[in-house]
Design a protein around this nucleic acid. Structure first.
Lengths: 154, 154
DNA sequence: GACAATCACTACTAAACTAGTATACTTACA
DNA sequence: TGTAAGTATACTAGTTTAGTAGTGATTGTC
């Protein structure tokens, strides 16, 4: 299956960073760019579209920057991917949120590939629409503790 | 997530067709192309690569054509997608079969996106590596019967 | 052994998409 | 009113997709 674009990876990375700073005021693009190693100009574009999608909001002028527009417990990875990348389903005709008959299939109900891809979509949605930014950050922290714990043991 | 390419869709469609003709000798490219509405020259390329991957074999000259090289119960949708499209995982660093550290992530063990995408990969593999060409064709037949049954009822 | 049927190989192309860069602008705080 | 921010628009090099075109290599049949 095709891969997540850099744009999506950067979007998620930026959002994780904003999750960690949630409640502590706006974060500068330049800092985000430096900390997360994302080309600044590209990040600007990405943040503008994340703003358009309602995930972040911005403050102009001195003391400005970006911050999450919703609590990180309410932003799911699935919604971010959909906003940046498009539907989760591997085929438009297997999409729940943005269904579109594909050019090819004659009979939608009896298209073998669609039957299978519906299942794939459902499985993906079950994971991605249940996982929030906050949950991912928690898991990352756990993983970090686990690995540093191991380090200490050796 | 990104969509299945036409190439993959055509590959699967061609393989379903060959599944239906399994055991009945070679099928002509021209017939496959006509029946499945796939541009002939493009289909030729696709079949050559499916042959390279070991899914089909061919016979040249008069009376020649293409046929499945393995029983349709033994070819999984996952293996076809992997051969045509590449790894199932949405990120190279989340792939089981073709793992590759991605340019971006500093620490693989504590990359949030990777943690989630590993799960997605596993879920996809569970479906795609368990579903065979034969199974898809059976399901399509069931769906066809069901819908024609409904037609009769009205 | 000629001929026709059939797959095989190589090269080309137009359009779309990706991952950016560059330049100029607007807003807001002090 | 200066300057630290984000905003908007446009451009570009490289890659991928979905083909098309033309020629070459085998093989079965008469």
């Amino acid at each position: 299956m095709r891969q997540l674009s850099k744009r999506t990876q950067y979007s998620l990375r930026a959002l994780y960073a904003l999750t960690r700073k949630y409640g502590a005021g706006p974060v500068l693009i330049s800092n985000l760019s430096k900390d997360e190693v994302i080309p600044k100009k590209f990040l600007e574009q990405i943040l503008v579209s994340l703003k358009g999608a309602g995930f972040v909001s911005s403050k102009k002028g001195k003391g400005g920057g970006y911050l999450l527009a919703q609590p990180p417990e309410e932003i799911t990875i699935g919604s971010v991917i959909r906003a940046v990348e498009g539907p989760l389903a591997p085929l438009p005709c297997a999409s729940e949120t943005r269904f579109r008959k594909c050019d090819e299939c004659v009979d939608i109900e009896t298209c073998g590939t669609r039957i299978v891809m519906r299942r794939v979509r459902d499985a993906m949605s079950e994971i991605l629409d249940e996982t929030t930014l906050a949950a991912v950050c928690r898991e990352v922290d756990l993983a970090k503790n686990a690995s540093s714990g191991q380090d200490r043991q050796t």
